[in-house]
Design a protein around this nucleic acid. Structure first.
Lengths: 220, 220
DNA sequence: GTCTATAACGAGATAGAC
DNA sequence: GTCTATCTCGTTATAGAC
């Protein structure tokens, strides 16, 4: 295959005698996560991760025997991190309206770097994914619907939020809208499109404009 | 490679002396379109199309020299068909509210067969697509925003529809919501989830419940 | 316009040395 | 844990016969 023997890769990270076995897996997941969020599960390979980390593909297979294993680990970690974020919102905010806006901000933080929500991206490719990953996706969206549904229900009880249908149904609508706003905004490479597409829907359930102050028009 | 020589493929379609050169391309596009809508651009191959049509991969390359060519043709046709559907809506309906609901029905027709909107699917993979396809995606969403924005603006002028922000902005929100509703409903393999996620957002702009009659709960 | 055959490459994955 | 080396298969694409 006409290989030109190149000098040894000069690993970036290695070289320290650290007994922690979790460090490498963590780095692998970080890179893989970004690749899935930007290119999709079928749009990246072990070679991409290996090149970025300065290791070989074989080394990756030591940590994640198959791509399906890696995929499962990705959703698992993402789902856990999301649950953690929701718990943090619950702790920090009391008013349902504030919780709702913090939830939206969570999605907004994703689009920086042109990323899609990990599970939204995988949702597009769902029919090509191994069954375990499909089940994890269901669980992810179920958990989101459940949390947001409760926030919305509480908000309506307090008279802070308004909507006609069951809270769970409105939660479904909003989660879909958030995912779709990410999806379309990425086409234009413009993160501001996300807010522009989402704010109207927030206003529909809140009576008043979202935060206390309006955002500025120009960068500043 | 231990090939077991199988009998000749027994083509399904061929065998007729038809001079139309466009027929094959049309069939190829039909299959490719469904594959992209269900599996994504990076989730199918020429081999998949060839197997389904009972032809060889080489034969496909005669009609679409590269996968990028095929991709471009797919968006072009899809975009044209969508424009045609919008023109048909304009002709058939006069009231903005009716046009809006017909627009939503267009999306709803997509999810049967577990399909995603072609351009919504490609939007997820946008960073892996050849530049021409990316530009086509922009044009597609621009056209949608433009059409829907005009419908919404007209509806508000008549007092039929209600929303606070510029019509174009509301159009952006609704298109994102529709794409996202498709995206998430597919995870559950449940087309009804689409309507459940979209109806609340329709009701927010229409004063009244969508159609004259409510849909039935059971199949019938 | 479709075929056979094959090139050229990349994918996921494994064996075994270190 | 990471490496080299290799395997097998799938992918896009081309050449040239029919």
């Amino acid at each position: 295959m006409a290989r030109n023997l190149k000098p040894p890769p000069q690993r970036a990270a290695a070289r320290r005698g650290r007994p922690e076995t979790g460090q490498s897996a963590h780095n692998i997941l970080d890179v893989a996560e970004r690749l899935v969020q930007t290119r999709g599960y079928n749009g990246f390979s072990y070679a991409d991760i290996a090149a970025e980390l300065g290791v070989t593909k074989a080394s990756l297979h030591y940590h994640f025997a198959s791509k399906a294993d890696l995929g499962r680990a990705l959703i698992e970690r993402y789902d856990a991190a999301f649950a953690h974020s929701l718990a943090a919102i619950d702790q920090r905010f009391t008013l349902p309206g504030d919780r709702l806006r913090a939830y939206v901000a969570l999605y907004e933080s994703v689009i920086r770097g042109q990323r899609m929500c990990l599970c939204g991206m995988l949702a597009a490719e769902v029919s090509t994914l191994p069954a375990p990953m499909q089940k994890q996706l269901n669980a992810y969206f179920d958990a989101n619907e459940s949390w947001l549904g409760q926030v919305l229900a509480a908000g309506r009880r307090r008279g802070e939020l308004q909507f006609a249908e069951p809270a769970r149904e409105r939660a479904r609508a909003m989660i879909g809208a958030l995912e779709g706003a990410l999806l379309v905004a990425r086409v234009y490479g413009d993160a501001r499109r996300f807010r522009a597409a989402v704010d109207p829907l927030i206003r529909d359930v809140c009576g008043a404009p979202p935060p206390m102050r309006r955002r500025r028009i120009s960068p500043g």
